[in-house]
């Protein structure tokens, strides 16, 4: 136990160090969620008679980038980030991702919503890991008052923070990856990269009917509410939810037959018509090369410099 640095803090500082940051974090998430939700509702009807270049309002380098290069690069870069082991390069990765987000001129609100969605999972790590990692040599631990069983290990906090930083860096790239081209184009790019064409078509179909089933589910749940149904923790609720679920599935299986009939009636023979053709330019490859170089640099930084 010689090389473990012990920091003893009085018990009253436990709330200061743990509970207060926690509360602040929770409050921030709550308010940001409300804010982002309000911002994410479209206020103005756009002109639907012209093709959207992307979901984003502005044109940018990322929008004009060949979709295949974009997918390959961002995926490879994401894996590079995922392989990082130290906090500093992970923070650099956040920097690069933010820069890309800025260049792509995609919606910050949507990026924020994505970050908030992982907040729960990530905060579990931030809360649990400092207390749960085993104490190794060279660790710095904080002990509050006489509560010897509750050891706050700074190495755990560092580990959790690294995970959080990596998650944030990758999540920030989602908007530049997905919102800079219409979904069918992105999926077409995937199919050009060797993913079976049907996979993309299945995503599109699922996406389309997701909205239909969500509306159906919403109407069914008002139907239940109007007859006095409120969810509680009891068997009655579970039975009602099971009926609801069963009905949702029955309706969807029935609908899928009709959809398939409608497709066949319009000449579907197992293949979807191909969307627009893609053209690769040198500049596309250049951006890919540049970006992947940045990714490699991060890994080198992580493995060699931080290790040393």
């Amino acid at each position: 136990m010689l090389d473990i640095t012990n920091i003893k803090l009085p018990l009253w500082q436990l709330p200061v160090f743990v509970l207060i940051p926690l509360a602040v974090f929770a409050l921030a998430v709550f308010f940001l969620k409300r804010f982002a939700y309000k911002r994410s509702i479209p206020t103005e009807e756009r002109d639907w008679s012209v093709p959207p270049i992307a979901d984003a309002i502005y044109d940018s380098v990322i929008n004009r980038w060949d979709v295949r290069c974009k997918i390959v690069t961002i995926l490879a870069f994401s894996f590079a980030i995922a392989s990082l082991k130290h906090l500093t390069p992970a923070l650099f990765a956040i920097g690069i991702s933010s820069l890309v987000l800025l260049i792509s001129r995609t919606s910050f609100t949507k990026a924020l919503l994505r970050l908030l969605a992982i907040a729960g999972f990530i905060s579990m790590f931030l809360i649990v890991m400092p207390f749960s990692v085993p104490v190794h040599s060279n660790d710095t631990v904080i002990i509050f008052g006489k509560m010897n069983w509750l050891v706050f290990n700074l190495r755990g906090l560092l580990l959790a923070a690294t995970i959080a930083a990596k998650a944030v860096a990758i999540t920030l790239l989602m908007e530049p990856l997905l919102s800079t081209a219409p979904l069918p184009v992105t999926l077409h790019g995937l199919s050009k990269l060797g993913v079976p064409e049907m996979a993309g078509q299945m995503v599109l179909l699922s996406y389309r009917y997701l909205h239909v089933f969500r509306h159906e589910a919403r109407r069914m749940s008002s139907g239940m509410q109007v007859r006095g149904f409120r969810k509680h923790t009891n068997i009655q609720t579970l039975r009602a939810v099971a009926n609801f679920l069963g009905m949702l599935l029955v309706r969807s299986f029935e609908r899928t037959e009709r959809v398939f009939d409608a497709m066949r009636a319009r000449g579907y023979k197992g293949r979807f018509p191909e969307p627009a053709e893609l053209h690769l330019k040198t500049s596309d490859l250049l951006i890919t090369a540049l970006w992947l170089a940045a990714g490699s640099a991060l890994i080198i930084f992580d493995r060699i410099i931080c290790q040393g």
Binding site: S206, R208, A217, V241, S252, T256
Partner: peptide, 17 residues
């Protein structure tokens, strides 16, 4: 497969309950 895609949407909605 197209039918499976439509049904997947329903399972997705179910998982939001």
């Amino acid at each position: 497969l197209p039918k499976l895609a439509v049904v997947t949407a329903a399972f997705f909605v179910a998982s939001l309950i």
